[in-house]
Design a protein around this nucleic acid. Sequence first.
DNA 1: AGCCGCGATGTAAACGATTACACAAAGGAC
DNA 2: GTCCTTTGTGTAATCGTTTACATCGCGGCT
Lengths: 362, 362
Amino acid sequence: MTIREVARAAAVSVATVSRVLNESGPVRDETSRRIRDVVERLRYSPHGAARSLITRRTSTLGVLLPDLYGEFFSELIRGIDSCAREGGYHVLVSGSHSDRAEIEAVLRATRGRVDGLIVMSPDLDARALNPHDGLPIVLLNGNGRRFDSIHVDNYGGALAMVRHLIGLGHRRIAHLSGPAGNRDAAERLRGYRDAMRTVSRHLAKDLVIDGDFREEAGYRAGPQLLDRKDPPTAVFAANDSMAIGLLAAFQESGVRVPGDVAVTGFDDIPIARFTTPALSTVRVPIAELGSKATRRLLQRLSSSNGHAVRHETLATTLVVRDSSGGRIREGVPADTDPTRPPATPHSHRSDFQRNNDSRSER
Amino acid sequence: MTIREVARAAAVSVATVSRVLNESGPVRDETSRRIRDVVERLRYSPHGAARSLITRRTSTLGVLLPDLYGEFFSELIRGIDSCAREGGYHVLVSGSHSDRAEIEAVLRATRGRVDGLIVMSPDLDARALNPHDGLPIVLLNGNGRRFDSIHVDNYGGALAMVRHLIGLGHRRIAHLSGPAGNRDAAERLRGYRDAMRTVSRHLAKDLVIDGDFREEAGYRAGPQLLDRKDPPTAVFAANDSMAIGLLAAFQESGVRVPGDVAVTGFDDIPIARFTTPALSTVRVPIAELGSKATRRLLQRLSSSNGHAVRHETLATTLVVRDSSGGRIREGVPADTDPTRPPATPHSHRSDFQRNNDSRSER
DNA sequence: AGCCGCGATGTAAACGATTACACAAAGGAC
DNA sequence: GTCCTTTGTGTAATCGTTTACATCGCGGCT
């Protein structure tokens, strides 16, 4: 079932078959029709490897992720996949890249298999992938200057959230941080610190508990926080998963949220609005993050003339639900979110949102 | 940076370089070392497409999924990816295949790009991929007889869950079903129906509400159920996402769970144990489903002598937490689950589990 | 009539690896 | 010394495409 057999069956040369299949070059209508018939009948489809060998394009995008755990990544991949497919590309994913050596191994293994790379590696500087022979790369929340990148405004989101809590009168606000070394986590922590600093030193004091982005960490943090002699009145978790774990711990201890203590998260994973109480959080446009990165990569692939490297930051949105106790119960318009794709209607639960627009183009 | 340049730089022939790189054939130690040095220095790595053209292997597995939404798929992909990487394979994913035409398009496009396929397509019979020229395929919850397949015991799990509710004294038990046409959903529904049938017709009556596996569907079902003149005392949702939506709706309506009504789910996604109240559900070994499928595929790839087609069904586990009200509060050993990977310790919240072992090998 | 251009097609050279085969040198066995 | 085997290496065919170039009619122009 090679192009050769098709050519023979249609009594033409391979060149003509190729021309018909790729719509390159002129072919008589009748010939074209005949060839198409044969292709259909023989169920021929060209061999990908052979094709990419000569065209030097694979129609495949590589996606390197630090992990594949949780709803965040399924959303991200969803954004990437839908956008890639639209552009006629396949997606090669690869999760759990802890150390630099592993990243390099994958980079090597994928040579000649992908046309470009989307790399998310928050633990690591991008130096590992420095010298990769001109393969276009888009970084997700990375810190390389040399590559295109799409960032999420972690800092701004955290700042807005903590200010929100401060605005509600909270002073003893704890932060449940993400894993050490993780860049996103670090930025959220920085936002927390800076927001706290705007309040008089005597009244507000940093209180950071180490977490790791998993539900369990939040669950364990609950008792730790309650056992202090000056327990916080609000806890800002570095992501929703931990906030949900925290919610569970408080619930078990009989601590009311938000009555006794406010709890907030970060990411706005789809489930956040269905927790009890509904979680106040910072919305990260996850799928959009993926699709934006993909679009950027595709555009760099098509226009080979190297545009300047671009760094873009996606704005986050403060989403006030019940768990922070800050919800305005009257006069809130139902679901005013313009960014949410209409494919996922959540029309019943209303959110109060504030766009925290510190978006920037560096 | 081709093998040719490496050969020239090391003053040997391309054949020798290839032999060193693949450890095929004898090479003098000194020559071998010299070549390795050059490879290192030139940062050479062989071109994937060229290699797969001649070897007829791509070291890539294709994964066709119906969708990429939610925690279920990230778990599944995680299982697949880790197992594939272990075997030295890459993973090409592709989500959202609604109709048959789309599946066929992807099948064509991936010819010569993958060595085998894992296909999950619960909406569809497997006939679409019938005649694919000898490409090894493993079906996930599909209904093809001709291909290897791994199933989840949806029926047994549903049966066990509904019996659990009946055992607690419930008679008016509603079922919030999955999307029409979805095979998993259909099996769970069948389990529900059969369990209900074991109770006297007068006392227990089917009550099925249509859902679609999304949180929102559960949320909307809440009022619908409460507004009936004979509201159910228990609701068995066809998956956890919908159960969580339902929990949120009941919470808002002031209906206590499990006091006023019991709620249960299916899947045991990681977040299920952190809902309020903790969700009673049926555990599906999702990551294992992925890794089992992958292992099967790999083994079929290596031993080309065609074993007979095998169909395997993975057992599910009844996980009793708080939302069903059936939790035995005394004498429950903490976290006795043997199937849970130690990588995700959830040591604080205890589960009471019952292995519903209707596993079978067809 | 001769020339040019163009449309339709065929021929063959790439692309970058693997590998069957050839071959040379060396070492034993006789 | 001849023959055979083993080891180490090189030459060239091969995988299935794309595509530059050549070819061949054919019609229009001068």
